[in-house]
Amino acid sequence: MINFQYARATDLADALRQIAAEPGAKFIAGGTNLIDLMKEDVERPPRLIDISRLPLREVEQTRHGGLLIGALVPNSDLAYHPLIERHYPLLASAILAGASAQLRNMASTGGNLLQRTRCYYFYDTATPCNKRTPGSGCAARYGVNRIHAILGTSDACIATHPSDMCVALAALDAQVHVAGPSGGRTLTFADLHRLPGTTPERDTNLAADEIITAVELPERGFAANYSYLKIRDRLSYAFALVSVAAALELEHGTIKEARLALGGVAHKPWRNVSAEAAMRGEPANRATFARAADAILRDAKGFAHNAFKIELARRAILRALSQAAAGTPQSQSVKKIR
């Protein structure tokens, strides 16, 4: 771990001033990922700017009938927030599928969006990794890649995004509010994270001097018909091999609106609007769900150890959409899959 400086930001403007003043400086909130990476010497920020005391801890209703979630709302507070539980249970479920109770208590909303991949090679400075050291190569591509991506990969990187919460936020069409030196801007969730391409070192489209201030949820919450299904190597406290956020709006058995996002399969939460469009107006049955699965997995490509994820994802999509249609979402406390 690098010998770093530490400073506390007094307000948002101060945070932005401080981050602009020192290249390589990082914001720290819960620190559940950043500190790990610093211990491994993967992240080497000369300065940490502590934003954990900034007033970004509110969950407020918006004029448009949605919710504005402050960037510092802890994951556990968010999962158990009455408005989230009632109107966005998909989000609550996805959060509770991730990490452990202790980590969720520390982890912030903004930090969850910005957590970095769990690729073994990214974490091990003794190995090549384009994401950690651009130009050094991707050892995962021909190495141990059972947990790696099957969609949107590039020659440079086959890492996955590890978040569960983000998969639900992608499905729910969340927006991300950002502040920067020249004011604020709003990104759609799909625009936040990037595909690796030739610059896998960049996880998101945020500039180095920008900060996430809030995540906004639209009114539509799919509270009646949803499921977050996470498939992993043990029944808790493991990253997803494949996870599925499924949400439906039904009218007499016909799909009025559908959302489908995948985790554990790509460099970002994976969503494909054409797969969703294919379900609209169709009956909520396995044939429809299978067509959606085919559509979202059309370009999937496996490597030496992870090709199974394609079939696993297909089956998990069928199950999650069936759970959503039946109104019997996957429980995150009872680990038995419905």
Binding site: Y120, Y121, D124, A126, T127, A139, Y142, G143, V144
Partner: peptide, 8 residues
């Protein structure tokens, strides 16, 4: 990783 000879 048998290419690197290293536990991953």
């Amino acid at each position: 990783d048998h290419t690197l000879g290293r536990m991953m």
